[in-house]
Amino acid sequence: MAVKIVESCVNCFACEPVCPSNAIYEAKPHFLVDSKKCTECEGAFADYQCASICPIEGAILNALGEQINPPGSLTGIPPERMAEAMAELQSH
């Protein structure tokens, strides 16, 4: 079982040093998780370390493929508000 970093990753390096298993590595186009090394922090920490420092909602998925930080959970921007603002900008 392992977490996964997906394409919305902005390559900020924050997760790499906090991983207790050294499972995260720099890659193109974005950082990746070595699924053989990832322990999902079991036995080490209560929370996924990578997902606890990651600033991008949706960039890290758990073993079930779910977003650990869903939209709105980190920025505090309600997703519908974000959608409205983006639609407003598109229309200009």
Binding site: V10, N11, C12, A14, P17, I53, P55, L74, T75
Partner: peptide, 28 residues
């Protein structure tokens, strides 16, 4: 590039050549 906090005036999806404000860069 890494940060340990989130500020409400910052968006970590930084990458824009045309903007001039803190937190924005083109090349790491």
């Amino acid at each position: 590039p890494a940060c340990n906090i989130q500020c409400h005036y910052c968006n970590r999806k930084y990458d824009c050549a045309n903007e001039s404000r803190p937190g924005v860069v083109s090349e790491l």
